[in-house]
Structures are given as structure tokens and as C-alpha cells.
């Protein structure tokens, strides 16, 4: 089946199989390898992308379901080679060790700060509760989101 959608701000079309999930489409057809597959069943958040502005697990969406949708992956959050402030702050705060959870964490944080520029610690924890990290212990990640929130507010 042929679908049309917007991928990282560009209009695209794709021929998709019924057996494909959104994550398969992104990684295999569009070579966007930033989106990771951990658990495949909606528990780890490594595959998080934005669908119409909302953080969604791309392992839980069928490729057929994104007709007309706006998809943004981690590759679309950076501005070309220029990292997004959230990404910069993840590096600075030591919020990345193996990095497997990072794209998903950044996407979840990005949605949070879009909708709530002044989140408290509880709200940050809630926003990333669906993103598992086996390395950092979360504290550095929460710090990175806090610093990003301040910085993004100041830059407005």
C-alpha cells in the first residue's frame, strides 16, 4: 500500500507492507538509524518518535497507520549538524553513557518542553517514565532536561 506523510518536515511517499511497523519503515526504508529498537512491545521507549507532535513508540504503530501524519525522528530534532540544545545538554550533563536510550529520551524531553516550558522534577520524571536507561541512573538525564528548560525559556 502506498502512503504519503511528512518525515522530518519533508513530504514523502512510501510503498509499505502490512507486516511493517513504523520503526521498520524509518530504519530500513529511510535509513534513519537514530530510532532504536529495544523491547519491541512498548516498554522501553528507545523507539520514541513524534507523531503529530506527540511522543509515540514507533514499535507500536503500523506503517499503514501514518498516512497523512507528521513524523519527526531524532534526526529531525537536530538542525543538520547543529545539535538541538537538549542534545547539547545531555552531553554536558553526562546523561549519555552507552547512548542506546538517548534518542528516545531526547524526543520525550522535546515533547515535554514544547508543551510545558517550565516542568517541575515530578513532571520531568513522568515524561520520561516510559524511557528506560540501564546506564545513567536517570539523575543526569533529569538534570539535562532541567538545564534545557531554563535555556530554552531564556532564548525565547
Amino acid at each position: 500500500m502506498k502512503i504519503k506523510f511528512t518525515l522530518n518536515k519533508k513530504k514523502v511517499t512510501a510503498e509499505v507492507e502490512s507486516t511493517e511497523r513504523l520503526i521498520d519503515l524509518l530504519r530500513n526504508k529511510f535509513q534513519l538509524m537514530g530510532t532504536k529498537e529495544g523491547c519491541s512491545i512498548g516498554e522501553c521507549g528507545a523507539c520514541t518518535i513524534l507523531m503529530d507532535g506527540k511522543a509515540v513508540n514507533s514499535c507500536l504503530v503500523l506503517a499503514e497507520q501514518i498516512e497523512g501524519a507528521e513524523i519527526i525522528t531524532i534526526e529531525g530534532i537536530a538542525d543538520g549538524e547543529q545539535l538541538h540544545p537538549i542534545q547539547e545538554n545531555f552531553i554536558k550533563a553526562g546523561a549519555i553513557q552507552c547512548g542506546f536510550c538517548t534518542p528516545g529520551m531526547v524526543v520525550s524531553s522535546y515533547e515535554l518542553l514544547n508543551e510545558n516550558p517550565e516542568p517541575n522534577e515530578e513532571e520531568i520524571k513522568e515524561a520520561i517514565a516510559g524511557n528506560l536507561c540501564r546506564c545513567t541512573g536517570y539523575k543526569q538525564i533529569i538534570d539535562a532536561v532541567k538545564i534545557s528548560a531554563e535555556q530554552l525559556r531564556d532564548s525565547k
Binding site: G42, G45, T48, M51, K54, A55, V56, N57, L60, V61, S108, E111, E126, A127, A129, G130, N131
Partner: peptide
């Protein structure tokens, strides 16, 4: 229920 990502869907 679930996580934020799940509740979005």
C-alpha cells in the same frame, strides 16, 4: 496507565 507514549496512543 502505561507511559506517556502509550497514553498518547
Amino acid at each position: 496507565i502505561g507511559s506517556h507514549q502509550i497514553r498518547n496512543r
